[in-house]
Computed example of a mutant assay.
Amino acid sequence: MTLAENANQRNYQHLVDQLYQTSDFDFVGVALQANQAPHQITWQYVAGNRGEQFRKIILRSGIGIAGLVVRTGKPFWNNALQNATYTDVLYTPIAQAECLTSAAAIPIVTTEFRLVTGVLLAGYRSTQTVSDQTISRLSHYLATF
């Protein structure tokens, strides 16, 4: 691992920890694309997790909140995650693994080529809702990163 990669990892973990500690989110995570083929996107940095299941999840483009963000490059939020079934496009493995009822996600974009290389997701296990304001708050955190 290069010095730059090691520093980047510390920064993402700091971002996740800071967002989790200074907000009311029950779960915060960053999924990133691997540098080597097949360039899978996996959850690498999390806070508030209930277990280690998140490590086995591989994001699929267009499936679930994070997959939709990867495919479209646009933020997305949902307040009825518990209603999604396995066959539903909005079925979100991370929400199932972490018992999230609502979540918001924004793309992590490379500055050089404007490619989506990851996702920042934050969610709740309770009846709290997410909205466009949640997206703005996540965008602010990412922008200061």
Rank of each mutant, 00 (worst) to 15 (best):
E112T: 14
A95D: 02
Q96H: 13
V109C: 02
N78W: 10
D88C: 01
I135E: 05
S102V: 13
Q82C: 08
K56W: 01
V46H: 03
R71H: 10
G48H: 11
T129K: 03
Q96R: 15
T92E: 13
Y86L: 13
Q82P: 03
L100H: 00
A105H: 03
T117L: 05
G67M: 10
Q82F: 06
Y124D: 06
E52A: 07
P93C: 04
T87F: 14
I94N: 11
S131D: 08
I58C: 15
S139R: 02
D132L: 09
T87I: 10
L90M: 15
I57Q: 08
R114V: 14
F54A: 03
C99Y: 14
L100A: 02
G118Y: 04
G123R: 06
G73L: 09
I106W: 10
K74D: 07
V116Y: 05
V109E: 04
Y45T: 06
K56V: 06
T87K: 12
P93H: 04
G48Q: 09
G123W: 11
S126F: 04
V119H: 01
A105R: 13
V119P: 01
F54Y: 15
I106H: 13
A103P: 12
S139F: 03
T92N: 07
W77Q: 09
N83E: 15
I108P: 02
R50L: 12
W43Q: 01
T110E: 07
P93D: 15
A105M: 05
Q44I: 06
A105K: 07
A66Q: 07
G51Y: 02
R60H: 09
L81C: 03
T134Q: 08
L59S: 01
G67S: 09
P107Q: 11
V119Y: 00
L138Y: 09
E112G: 09
K56E: 14
T134P: 09
Y45I: 11
F76D: 00
A122K: 10
Q128I: 01
Q44S: 12
L81G: 05
R55K: 13
E112K: 14
R114N: 14
R60Y: 09
A103I: 11
G118T: 06
T92K: 01
G118V: 10
N83G: 00
S102D: 07
R50A: 03
Q44E: 15
W43R: 15
L100N: 00
P75D: 00
V116S: 00
I106R: 02
L90A: 05
T42N: 12
Y45F: 15
L59F: 05
E52P: 00
T42Y: 00
N83D: 15
S139M: 02
Q44R: 15
G64L: 07
T117K: 06
R137T: 11
T127N: 03
L59R: 02
R71N: 10
S139A: 08
R50G: 10
L68G: 11
L100C: 00
V89R: 11
A47R: 00
S102P: 14
R55F: 01
E112L: 12
W43C: 13
L138S: 09
